[in-house]
C-alpha cells in the first residue's frame, strides 16, 4: 500500500468523505476501528503536521490524528470538494 489512491490519505484539507471500506487485516487498523473509523463513518481532513504527516481528521466532532501509512488502509468516498 504505497499509493494514496482514494484513501483517507488522499483527502484534501477541509474535504469530507465517508469511509467505504477498511483493509482490516492489520491489528493496528483493527485498533483504529474500535475508535470509530469504520465503514459508514463520516470523516473530514482538518490539517497536516509539518511535512504532511501525521494528518489530523475530524470524526463526529472529535479530532483524531493518523499517520499517512495508517490512513492508507481506509478507502473513502469523498463528499463535496476540498479547498
Amino acid at each position: 500500500m504505497k499509493h494514496n489512491g482514494n484513501t483517507l490519505a488522499a483527502l484534501k484539507k477541509g474535504q469530507k468523505g465517508v469511509i467505504s471500506a477498511v483493509d482490516a487485516a492489520c491489528p493496528h487498523v483493527q485498533r483504529l476501528m474500535t475508535l470509530g473509523l469504520v465503514e459508514g463513518a463520516e470523516i473530514e481532513l482538518r490539517s497536516a503536521a509539518l511535512g504532511g504527516d501525521p494528518l489530523e481528521f475530524r470524526l463526529f466532532g472529535r479530532g483524531i490524528s493518523l499517520r499517512l501509512e495508517q490512513a492508507r488502509h481506509f478507502t473513502v468516498s469523498p463528499v463535496g470538494p476540498g479547498d
Binding site: H28, R31, L32, L35, P54, E56, R62, G63, I64, S65, L66, R67, Q70
Partner: peptide
C-alpha cells in the same frame, strides 16, 4: 506502534 491520537479541543 500505531499512532492514533485523539486530539481534544
Amino acid at each position: 506502534p500505531p499512532f492514533a491520537l485523539m486530539l481534544p479541543e
